[in-house]
Write a protein that binds this DNA or RNA. Structure first.
Length: 140
DNA sequence: GCCAACGTTGGC
DNA sequence: GCCAACGTTGGC
């Protein structure tokens, strides 16, 4: 059985929020126009867990989504070799994990979100994923 | 193929 | 709203 991978996607909540994903039940994760981000989309496998990060006005991880459909040609691209995946909401974090919290956590110094701040789709290691889940479980 | 100019992203 | 980081574009 294939190992499950973990990812993080960024979105401006004014563009597409966790609340909207929850209402929709499922969405096309399209419009990615960066090669590294696109390649990460293509590495996603059905069932992988995806941390859902609100950039700009949010600046926190708010929930966990899951990959419902693996990469296919981006329906929003009129030219170019771009991909989309489908995401479904899985679970909101009890306590959103803020960017500030992550920046100050010694276990997360390698987190791609902190090291490549402009990348919109990135991998998360299993220990990082578990740490973020723990931080999101409740306030301590 | 280099690299300067430009555009976009996103934290602050 | 500013601006640093950085990816992309295009002239040469």
């Amino acid at each position: 059985m294939a190992k499950s991978n973990h990812w993080l996607v960024k979105t401006e909540p004014s563009e597409y929020s966790w609340a909207q994903l929850t209402r929709d039940g499922r969405t096309h994760w399209s419009g990615v126009r960066n090669y590294e981000a696109r390649n990460n989309l293509r590495r996603m496998r059905r069932g992988d867990q995806v941390l859902f990060y609100h950039s700009n006005s949010g600046q926190e991880i708010v929930g966990i989504a899951t990959v419902a459909r693996e990469a296919y040609p981006d329906p929003d691209a009129d030219s170019g070799d771009w991909s989309a995946v489908d995401l479904e909401p899985r679970k909101a974090l009890e306590a959103p994990v803020t960017l500030f919290r992550m920046k100050n956590d010694p276990d997360l110094v390698q987190l791609a979100l902190l090291r490549k701040p402009r990348l919109s789709v990135m991998p998360v290691t299993p220990p990082e994923f578990q740490r973020i889940l723990a931080l999101g479980r409740s306030h301590s």
